[in-house]
Computed example of a mutant assay.
Amino acid sequence: MSEQTLNRPTVPTGVPALSRGRGIRLGLKRIGYEVRVYFRLGDQVFFTFLFPVVMLSIFSAAFSASGNVGTNADGSGGISQGAYFLPGMIAAGILLSGVQNLATDIANEKSDGTLKRLGGSPLPVISYFTGKMGQVFVTSIAQVALLLVVARVVFSIELPTEPEKWVTFAWLYLLGIVTSAVLGIALSAVPRSGKSATAVVIPIVLVLQFISGVYLMFTMLPEWLQNIASLFPLKWLAQGMRSVFLPESFAALEQNGAWELGAVAINLLIWCVLGLVLSRLSFRWIRKDG
């Protein structure tokens, strides 16, 4: 055995440690692998990638006979049902891509021994999570793009033309997807097995969608339920997305009569930090390699 090998730093399990730069490069390569695996799982693709598109199509078609939302007293004006529900579907898609996708995926990998095998390999934790986070970004961006194309081409929904609206959309998306991803990692510790992951995670995200203004107009909910929804990030993300895609007059329909983008950012940041802390405390690798 060479002197260089003897002097190589090792982790507690005796697996050679890799430099941080090497770990990032491995993680970037792993993104492609994670994306390929994601699209091979039909149920996951439907329930986290296509589900918001399907729901937007259903809502646009099923409620078109109900007329526009926010019409004037004389029946003029307003926006279509599809246009009203589009921002909520985008917010829900971000939640599904991060929380539901990662929570079930990591729980399954714990259950089937994948994490144990990776823990015995030189792959650092940072590479593993770079792959996971990269997959979430790639698939969620593709999902949002598909939603917007379907909205514009199929349902003739007008999209914003003001650059500042798209700037707001960009920071909302980035903050929302990071928050959803770290919360998904933290939630992956809750299911006791891979088989129970779906049963644990889906009801949580489904309830949040119903009380956060995704499938129902938020002001239709009783005040006490609105207050409960305000404790969770999806309500704020959906509200922020409505500020991007809905006319300014619709701000009066929010809980406090305004878009409150400052409060949106603060609440999402709080949940992002909480998710990071919980992820750090709950994730268990077979070895500790920083």
Rank of each mutant, 00 (worst) to 15 (best):
N267G: 06
V154S: 14
I202Y: 13
K165F: 04
A258K: 13
L146P: 00
L95I: 07
P160K: 03
V277I: 14
D112S: 11
L234R: 04
S212P: 06
E162C: 07
G27T: 01
F137I: 05
V277P: 07
L225D: 00
I24C: 08
M217W: 11
S243F: 01
L206A: 11
T10F: 14
Q100E: 03
T139E: 10
S230V: 03
G32N: 11
L237T: 05
S57E: 02
S282P: 08
S212A: 09
A265N: 09
I266L: 13
S249H: 08
L146S: 00
I141V: 15
M241C: 06
L208F: 11
A186S: 07
P163H: 12
L278T: 08
A92G: 07
R30A: 03
L261E: 00
Q226G: 15
V136K: 01
W171C: 07
A92E: 10
L95F: 08
F218G: 03
A258N: 13
G184Y: 15
I157N: 06
T198Y: 14
R117Y: 15
G240R: 02
G213A: 02
V214S: 02
F51L: 11
N108A: 09
R22W: 03
G262R: 09
K116I: 04
Y215A: 01
L216V: 15
V190K: 05
P12V: 11
R25P: 01
V244E: 01
P160L: 04
S2N: 12
P203D: 11
G120R: 10
K195W: 10
